[in-house]
Amino acid sequence: MEITESKERDFLVLSVVGRLDANSINKFEETLIGKIEDGNKNVVIDLSDLEYISSSGLRVFLVGAKKLDEFDKKLNLCNVKEHIQEVFNITGFTPIFDFYDNLRSVTNK
């Protein structure tokens, strides 16, 4: 799992590449929570290249969403592949996040 970071307008963009499982979540959690605590409140996670997620990965998204909720912000997710989206859907996690088809529709909102 690799994370790349960029800025688009007012948004911090984190792109997660590869697999999010119990073996790889620590680095993702540290990055995401660290960035929010550093003052980034407009956060979008680009999942174009996320191939795999387990419940351990879902938990990190939940922790990030709860952290942003303290500032009345939602965690934005974009470019989510169908089989990844299904995991969010069947676990009932979908309403916690704002989903977008692509990065532009988040940063232009």
Binding site: S55, R59, K66, I90, T91, G92, F93, P95
Partner: peptide, 21 residues
């Protein structure tokens, strides 16, 4: 348990739930 708020659900059961599904 789908009746409790998602953020309050114990995370441990989530994996087994997915396996059953």
């Amino acid at each position: 348990d789908f009746n409790t708020d998602v953020s309050e659900r114990p995370i441990g059961g989530l994996g087994i739930f997915l396996v059953r599904k």
